[in-house]
Structure formats: C-alpha cells, structure tokens
C-alpha cells in the first residue's frame, strides 16, 4: 500500500479501475444517450446504443431555463457544507474527546434523528419558517438541508476523533493549550479526511435533496435543480430529453467540483499537514 512502485506494475489496476468506473457509470451514459434522443426513437426496439440521429432540443431548453437553478443548487450545496462542518466538527470533538456526561445518550439521539422520515422534518421546518418568514429563502433551505448532514457528521467525527491518540492531546495540554485551541490546532488538522468525507456528504445530500426544497422553497425565485426538472413533467407529457439533459448539465459541474476538491485536499494531505 505504498507509493513509488514502478508505474508498469500498476497499469493493470488503472485499467481495472477504468473498467469498473465505466460499468458504474453506464446508467449515466444511458441518461446522456437519452438526452440526445428524439422522442420517436425513445422506445425503439432494439434500443439505439448511440444517438445516431441526435436532437439538441433538450439542451437548448435546459441552457435557456435551468442555469439559475444550477447556481442555486451549487450555492445551497456549498452553504450546507460550510454550516455542517462549523456545527458538526466541534460537536464531534466534544463528544469524542471531552468526556461529556450523557454523551452516549446524545449519540443515540443522533442515531434516532437519522430514522425520522425527512417529511416529518420538512413539516416541522415549514411550521417554523412560516412564522419566521424564511420560506422560499436560500438561507432557510441551507439550514434545513444541513439537518440531514449534521447528525451524520457528528457521528462520523465522533467515530474518527475517538481514534486520535490521546498523547497528542495531552502534549497540547501540557503546552498550555485550552480545549478550543487544541481543537483548532491539533484535532481539526488531524481530522482532515473526516472533514472531507463530511463535506462530501453534506454537499451530495444538499444537492440531491428534493423533499425540503419542494416543501420550503417551492415558490421561490431561486429553486434548486431537483425541482427545476419537474418543469418538464407535464400533466400528460414527459419531455425525457429535457429531463435527462438537465441531469447531465447538472452533474457535470458537480462532478468537476468533486474531482478538483479531492485533488486539492489530497495535495494538502501529502504536503505534510498530517503525518501518519
């Protein structure tokens, strides 16, 4: 499991990796294929492997109508990441390392929180937001979406932070660092991987959320892409190529963001922030 092996020895792994990825992404390819297919060819038998007779109608509609939604989704996703980490990291730290009373009970509550159907949460938020006037605001949606990721984030941080060697913390305490400084200068940098994971989850959940968006943000000017798609599902017709085109257009920037973010963080890790 170390680097610096001659590349010749790992090329087959790359090949295998590409193969797995291709297999995994086949449905995504199929979606892209449909996005270019004319309605009359949608259900052709046998199906067309490749859109020989493509139409760009779907993309034209999407680029014209859906770009603001895409921006909203990105904004909500990133906002949710920030909020989740700001809340979950200190909470996980407190639970894992500060020996709080009732930590176990709290842990259980967090687990139970995952079991509550999202609709129940959405209903609660609706009632509160009506009074606070937060309906149809991006901020409100970010707060709501982060309730999916925060309990999970706390659980994950707790699980990982309890694995941090106590000696590290004791050393810091001997240096006179308080709980907060220990957290900032030792625990947080060491938990970089966990932060990445939590951030990833927060982003993906916020990105794919439908229930909160449709409950809390339905009539806003800024609707996320998961709602934007419903524009193409009319009462009696379904514009498949527009739907699929929306999904393609929406997943490309998000995928790029994921790749770039991972590279960036991975670079930070190897630059020596953490010593294994």
């Amino acid at each position: 499991m170390t680097g610096r092996r001659p590349l010749r020895k790992t090329w087959w792994k790359t090949a295998l990796g590409v193969f797995f990825t291709a297999l995994m992404l086949f449905p995504a390819y199929w979606m892209a294929n449909v996005s270019l297919t004319r309605t009359s060819d949608l259900r052709a038998d046998p199906p067309h492997w490749f859109p020989w007779n493509p139409t760009l109608e779907g993309y034209a509609a999407v680029l014209e109508q859906q770009l603001p939604s895409l921006g909203t989704s990105l904004l909500v996703g990133l906002g949710c990441v920030a909020l989740t980490i700001v809340v979950a990291a200190p909470a996980g730290y407190a639970l894992a390392l500060l020996n709080l009373r009732g930590g176990r009970a709290l842990n259980f509550v967090l687990l139970v929180a995952q079991m509550i159907p999202a609709v129940v949460m959405a209903m609660g938020f609706y009632a509160i937001y009506v009074r606070l006037g937060l309906l149809n605001t991006v901020g409100g949606l970010i707060v709501a979406d982060s309730t999916i990721a925060v309990p999970f984030g706390v659980l994950l941080y707790t699980a990982f932070m309890s694995g941090i060697p106590r000696e590290l913390l004791q050393a810091a305490r001997i240096d006179g660092a308080g709980a907060w400084r220990t957290f900032r200068s030792i625990v947080l940098p060491v938990s970089r991987n966990s932060t990445l994971t939590v951030a990833l989850f927060a982003f993906l959940w916020a990105w794919s959320d439908f229930i909160f968006a449709s409950t809390l943000n339905r009539n806003g000017d800024l609707i996320p892409i998961t709602l934007g798609i419903y524009k193409y599902i009319g009462n009696n017709t379904t514009q498949w190529n527009s739907i699929m085109a929306t999904a393609v257009v929406a997943s490309v920037p998000a995928a790029i963001l994921l790749v770039v973010a991972q590279r960036y963080v991975a670079a930070g890790v190897t630059a020596g922030a953490v010593k294994d």
Binding site: P117, V119, A122, M123, F210, I211, S214, T215
Partner: peptide, 10 residues
C-alpha cells in the same frame, strides 16, 4: 412527495 407529504406528517 412534496409539500403534500406534509399532510402525511400531520
């Protein structure tokens, strides 16, 4: 599921 689901919640 939508707002509608709110009904179920109730």
């Amino acid at each position: 599921t939508t707002v509608a689901l709110a009904t179920a919640t109730a």
